[in-house]
Simulated assay, not measured.
Amino acid sequence: MAEPLLRVESLSKAYGGVQAVKDVSFTLVPGEILALIGPNGAGKSTCFNMVNGQIEPSGGRIFIDGQDTAGMSPRQIWRLGVGRTFQVAAVFSSMTVRENVQMALLSHENRTNVFWRQARQMESGKADEILELIGMASHADRPCAEMAYGDVKRLELAIALANDPKLLLMDEPAAGMAPRERVELMALTGRIARERNIGVLFTEHDMDVVFAHADRLMVLNRGELIAEGDPEEVRHNPQVRATYLGEGLVYDQAKTKVTT
């Protein structure tokens, strides 16, 4: 088995007397797509943001590619080769699609202090390669303000890939998208992750997306990890069914759909 790209050991976070995350441990290997799910208030976002450096853990350790991230800022963690997308996509709406990717590339290379007239000529070829990879080459010159939300989410993925990440963190990537767009985005993410050997950790409420695209699932409840395994194992786990998915859950594999 491959060496872990991400290793989390006994991660915990307390806010006063409230234990948001309690003694959570897991690993993620290159090329693997791992979903972190659970009911509202389970501690998913807290756990996710500790990995990204936005929240400081109360206890435990996080290693990315063997390096302890204790005390690192989100930007320092990004520099380790960590890409990030957000629940609400954030792009520069006044710029074109290509210019957004160019800015991400220049940031990765610490060249954001150049004049914009010069910057517009830099990294355009590499930006176009990334846009080709995600199927948006024909949109390169479009202003982002004119784009549909599904295309903005795909552009956000392109921006995350500009960092040439080893690890990709995706916070509810399907949020706000139409059902078909959700499937297409996650299928695209999975293909790129396997081609480039990128580890993907994502949180998601859409169970269609989770069960169709995750290699492995972790389920949190009240800050504790209650189940971990492949989709089939988690789907039939009695504790998961009782606390999150529901006792009457039936998963229709043929339709890639969760029903009750």
Results as ranks from 00 to 15, higher is better:
L6M: 10
R7P: 00
E9A: 11
S10W: 01
S12F: 07
S12Y: 06
K13T: 03
Y15L: 09
G17M: 08
G17E: 08
G17C: 07
V18D: 00
V18H: 04
A20E: 03
A20N: 08
V24F: 11
S25V: 10
S25D: 12
T27F: 01
T27G: 03
E32K: 03
L34K: 08
L34E: 01
L34G: 02
A35L: 07
I37V: 15
G38A: 05
G41W: 05
A42I: 06
A42S: 15
A42Q: 05
S45W: 02
F48C: 02
Q54T: 07
Q54V: 10
I55Y: 09
P57N: 12
G59I: 07
G60S: 09
G60I: 07
F63L: 14
D68V: 08
G71W: 07
S73N: 01
S73A: 04
P74T: 03
R75A: 09
Q76E: 15
G81Q: 11
V82W: 04
G83Q: 07
G83H: 03
F86S: 11
A89P: 00
F92T: 02
S94K: 14
E99F: 06
V101A: 11
M103Y: 04
L105K: 01
S107K: 10
S107R: 11
H108M: 05
H108T: 08
N110M: 07
R111K: 13
R111W: 02
T112L: 15
V114T: 09
V114S: 07
W116S: 14
R117P: 05
Q121P: 03
E123R: 15
K126W: 05
G135K: 12
S138A: 15
S138H: 13
H139T: 01
A140F: 07
P143D: 11
A145P: 01
M147R: 00
A148E: 07
A148T: 00
R154F: 03
R154S: 06
R154H: 07
L157W: 02
A162T: 03
N163P: 00
N163A: 15
L167P: 12
E172I: 03
P173T: 08
A175V: 10
A175R: 13
G176F: 08
M177T: 10
A178Q: 13
R180C: 06
V183H: 15
V183W: 06
E184K: 13
L185K: 11
A187R: 13
L188N: 09
L188K: 13
G190Q: 12
E195I: 06
N197G: 11
N197P: 00
V200P: 00
F202H: 05
T203E: 06
F211Q: 01
F211D: 00
A214M: 02
M218W: 01
L220Y: 09
N221R: 03
N221A: 12
E224L: 02
E228V: 10
G229C: 05
D230Q: 02
D230V: 02
D230C: 04
P231A: 05
E233Y: 01
V234L: 02
V240P: 01
R241M: 11
T243E: 14
Y244S: 08
L245K: 06
E247L: 13
G248M: 11
G248P: 00
L249E: 02
V250M: 11
V250P: 09
Q253I: 06
K255C: 02
T256H: 14
T256Q: 14
V258S: 12
V258W: 04
T260Q: 12
T260F: 14
